[in-house]
Design a protein around this nucleic acid. Structure first.
Length: 489
RNA sequence: GGCCCGUUGGUCAAGCGGUCUAAGACACCGCCCUUUCACGGCGGUUACAGGGGUUCGAAUCCCCUACGGGUCACCA
């Protein structure tokens, strides 16, 4: 493949959306795969809604995901500036060119007039579109309007006949009839270009070779193509990726749960897991393996394995993939990620002493293989913090009513307080001694101890629970359980 | 509503006219492993939207219908 230059060009009107993240990812992967450049540019021509705060959020999220760029905002590059509002002269110049050649014209219609026209079309049962009032204004007309103080917009003159064909890398050839495209605005009355105009100029001036973006842009593409042709600029290649849908098969929105990358970040998803999950939405690898690091994805990614049909966001699978990465993760990293969740749930404070830190470490080792997102650590926390036990069911209580229980628990209590070091291995040995001395089968020992300690019949490895709890809490918990059930030890 | 895109199991998806009595993954169910659960291993249930063509042969090509989505802004 020739040199590849791709870009991600978000508008900073909100946090980075899951769909945007996938578009960025696809662009990034293609660039890396073919040794090209990935550019990040900011499309902030919507003055009302754009904010620096959103811009920062988007950029931070990209970095968090591990998606890095070669040129653009924050890093600079040969085509700076990378914020559209800082590139206004480029658009003005091109608009003048189009005006001069008659391929664009000034339109003085007010928003109210436009709205009235729209309504008129609707009333007549016709499709609303621009009526073309200002298509052939005389110099006198223009002068008169200007005298009235009207601020014109600039519209692109769309040919009355003919068709525009988009040659799409994922969809093939898609044709649009010019008749269905009204003369659209390329420069707003405040002199700011519209999206359809600015993208073209920026993609052209930044030598973008492939435009990979969401399918919602497909029907905009003919307009952009018209501009490329009018300006005599060569077209890049296009690839429109289908949308990500919510569970009910409509466009993913708030009501389907979290849609922003930061939301997943704060819920305790790992960036590599989110990347892995996202890439599988719309792209499929060649073999049967589905778990890939970014580097592995780079060596495998290709546009011809991108699917045409929309994909439903399946959080079950995200959780599964996140679980895979959690199990692979270093324990220290997991601890760092768990801390905020434990703080938020009130189990720990801002500062941790060594003992608390060690406790969290044991706890994380115990739950690492049981959780699929860091948010779940808080669910397990009651097993590790505090000296009280709540029974999950009558069935659990019944376990402690068995006849061997007093003997078992006494033996356990006696050994745990005999001064030995408490760590997973020694606890394991200790429990074994208890089974031996009380001549009980394993289950008769492990179950009561587990229930007395946690109130539950299932849970993380007992050796780690005992270690994390420490001698004092272990004793306190066993006594608390016994007291609740009237057991005398 | 016009235009555009799409439709393989509950979900993601492979499949590019014969090797499809249709791969793999998630979820679900069962068994094994484990003196719990989870992890892991093994096995199982479940799909070519419907109807017409084209062809010796169609999940794969064409048309229609249905359904879903996108887009028709001085938003991107």
């Amino acid at each position: 493949m020739q040199n590849v230059r791709v870009r991600f060009a978000p508008s900073p009107t909100g946090p980075l959306h899951i769909g945007g993240a996938r578009s960025a990812l696809f662009n990034f992967l293609l660039a890396r795969r073919f040794g090209g450049q990935f550019i990040v540019r900011i499309e902030d021509t919507d003055l009302e809604r754009s904010s620096l705060e959103s811009e920062k959020n988007i950029l931070d999220s990209l970095e968090w995901l591990g998606i890095t760029w070669d040129e653009g905002i924050r890093v600079g590059g040969p085509h700076a500036p990378y914020r559209q509002t800082e590139r206004l002269s480029i658009y003005t110049e091109a608009a003048e060119k189009l005006l001069a050649s008659g391929q664009a014209y000034r339109c003085y219609c007010s928003e109210e007039e436009l709205e009235a026209q729209r309504q008129a079309f609707i009333d007549k049962g016709e499709m609303p579109r621009y009526a073309g009032n200002c298509r052939c204004l005389s110099l006198e007309d223009e002068a008169r309007y200007q005298a009235e103080g009207r601020k014109p917009v600039i519209r692109f003159r769309v040919p009355d006949e003919g068709a525009v064909t988009v040659d799409d890398l994922v969809r093939g050839q898609v044709s649009f009839d010019c008749a269905g495209i009204g003369d659209f605005i390329i420069v707003k009355s405040d002199g700011i270009p519209t999206y359809n105009f600015a993208v073209v100029l920026d993609d052209a001036s930044m030598d973008i070779t492939h435009v990979i973006r969401g399918e919602e842009h497909l029907s905009n593409t003919p307009r952009q193509l018209l501009i490329y042709d009018a300006l005599g600029i060569s077209r890049p290649k296009f690839a429109h990726v289908s949308l990500i849908l919510g569970k009910d098969r409509t466009k993913m929105s708030k009501r389907h749960g979290s849609t922003s990358v930061v939301a997943y970040q704060s819920q305790g998803y790992l960036p590599e897991a989110l990347v892995n999950f996202l890439v599988l939405l719309g792209w499929s690898p060649e073999g049967e393996e589905e778990i890939f690091t970014l580097d592995e994805l780079i060596s495998r990614f290709s546009l011809d394995r991108v699917a045409k049909n929309p994909a439903v966001f399946d959080s079950d699978k995200l959780n599964y993939i996140n679980g895979v990465y959690i199990r692979k993760a270093e324990i220290d990293r997991l601890i760092e990620l768990a801390l905020p969740h434990l703080r938020e749930a009130g189990y720990i404070g801002e500062e941790l002493d060594d003992q608390q830190m060690q406790k969290v470490r044991w706890m994380m080792q115990a739950v690492q293989e049981k959780i699929s997102s860091m948010g779940q650590v808080a669910d397990f926390a009651p097993l590790f913090f505090g000296d009280e036990v709540t029974f999950e069911s009558d069935e659990a209580k019944a376990v402690l009513a068995e006849e061997q229980v007093p003997v078992v628990l006494n033996a356990f209590l006696q050994k745990i307080t005999d001064g030995r070091a408490i760590e997973p291995d020694s606890v394991k040995a200790l429990l074994k001694e208890v089974t031996k001395e009380t001549k009980q089968g394993g289950k008769k020992v492990f179950m009561p101890v587990r229930v007395a300690l946690t109130g539950q019949q299932h849970g993380p490895d007992l050796n780690y629970i005992v270690t994390a709890l420490g001698q004092e809490s272990v004793v306190a918990r066993v006594r608390h359980s016994a007291a609740q059930l009237g057991l005398s030890l």
